[in-house]
């Protein structure tokens, strides 16, 4: 889980190479939602170094079939190589990714570009009845769902009945 400040990063006292790897990964943007880094998105699951300083980085996909996963792995490898770090990137699926892992700063960045961030699953689950979602543009609570599936696997499409603008909602997952 993100730390108390809602951020992901190295454990206190981590090796310098591990910290450097987190810094490099924080510069890799999600290809489909380029305002979020893969660290903000909570898909960097673990960074560790062996005795020789060789790094292992574990990433997890958001959705099983997310077509961006391959690109994300490639970009993470590129960013680590650019930072002159010797790292092996692997993909893990357990435990499964949840939108609870999106950092607080990530949620703010989503809201800034007009994507309604996901509520914490403790407050609302995927299968619970839909709750009121406020329009990210005008703030009206008079909105409707157009489709459960939006422009990417992780979003649904809604529209505002007041200002008539359509908008994306990050699905609680």
């Amino acid at each position: 889980m993100p730390d108390a400040a809602g951020c992901w990063g190295p454990e206190p006292g981590a090796d310098a190479v591990v910290k450097a790897a987190w810094d490099a990964l924080a510069g890799v943007m999600d290809p489909e939602i380029p305002v979020l880094s893969i660290v903000d998105l909570g898909i960097v699951r673990a960074v560790s170094a062996d005795e020789d300083g060789r790094l292992s980085v574990a990433l997890t996909p958001t959705y099983s079939g997310c077509p961006a996963t391959g690109v994300i792995v490639l970009e993470a490898e590129t960013a680590l190589a650019r930072a002159r770090l010797d790292a092996r990137v692997s993909v893990v699926i357990a435990p499964p990714w949840t939108t609870d892992w999106i950092s607080d700063s990530g949620r703010e960045k989503l809201a800034e570009v007009g994507i309604v961030p996901p509520p914490h699953s403790g407050k609302r689950s995927l299968t619970a009845p839909d709750e009121v979602i406020a329009c990210p543009r005008c703030g009206s609570e008079d909105t409707r769902q157009i489709s459960r599936f939006g422009s990417t696997a992780c979003k649904a499409l809604h529209a505002c009945n007041a200002c008539l603008e359509p908008f994306d909602v990050f699905k609680c997952h």
């Binding site: 996909p61 959705y63 099983s64 079939g65 997310c66 077509p67 599936f149 696997a153």
Partner: peptide, 11 residues
């Protein structure tokens, strides 16, 4: 989208 998920499970 559903197809993508299913192909992901298949993989």
């Amino acid at each position: 989208n559903v197809a993508l998920d299913l192909v992901g499970h298949a993989r």
